[in-house]
């Protein structure tokens, strides 16, 4: 690949990130929550593209499935129970703005010494026992083409165990708050009598 290809790669990411900023600002401004939710779905799809452009296909797949899929569905579910429109806020919150600007400033200060984007010799990409080890040794040790999977499930399998536990925790949390069973049910015309009875048994 040539230098031009690198430039194009960079430019793609830049454009996508700019688009993301636009969407995020849209979410800040809009009072209609439904639109905000739809925008956040769009946002997730865009970010999946960003991840592809950054070579993180697994992340992209997950972001698409989770961000655009599950998150949007539960957000919509929530909106269907609550209000669709946010109460307009009369005054801007300047304290919050100051905090945000300060935090952002600190972060920008931190990026000044950051290795440049795509640098193969950055500490993160050149650590012999981590990044390099995974790319060079995993074939020998685990022999799975997708390095992400071998890192995820084996080298850092313990993290993934924790991740599964997080999902589980969230599930029992939601269960404890909302409950799995329907507490009050109208008759569903699509169900036969037999099915209705079965469901009642199931619920009791």
């Amino acid at each position: 690949m040539s230098v031009d290809a690198i430039v194009i790669e960079h430019v793609i990411v830049m454009v996508l990130l700019t688009l993301l900023i636009v969407v995020a600002v849209g979410i800040i401004i809009l009072n209609d929550l439904l639109t905000a939710v739809i925008l956040s779905g769009l946002y997730s799809l865009l970010s999946a593209t960003v991840f592809v452009a950054m070579d993180a296909v697994d992340v992209a797949l997950t972001e698409a499935a989770v961000g655009a899929g599950i998150s949007t569905i539960i957000l919509l579910g929530t909106l269907s129970f609550t209000k669709r429109v946010q109460k307009p806020q009369e005054h801007n919150n300047y304290a919050a703005l100051i905090i945000v600007v300060m935090t952002g400033g600190a972060l920008i200060y931190g990026t000044l010494d950051l290795p440049s984007y795509g640098d193969p010799n950055s500490p993160a990409n050149s650590h012999p026992q981590l990044a390099q080890h995974y790319l060079t040794e995993s074939q020998k040790e685990i022999d799975i083409p997708n390095v992400v999977t071998s890192v995820l499930a084996s080298y850092r399998g313990y993290d993934t165990l924790g991740e599964t536990a997080v999902v589980f925790t969230a599930a029992i949390g939601v269960l404890s708050l909302l409950g799995l069973r329907r507490r009050r049910r109208k008759e569903d015309p699509l169900l036969t009598d037999k099915q209705q009875r079965k469901q009642q048994n199931e619920d009791n």
């Binding site: 690198i6 950054m54 984007y117 990409n125 083409p145």
Partner: peptide, 14 residues
Amino acid sequence: VGLGKVDNGTAPIF
């Protein structure tokens, strides 16, 4: 993810 990007690189799947 940006930290892990390598120029001219590709997704870490052999």
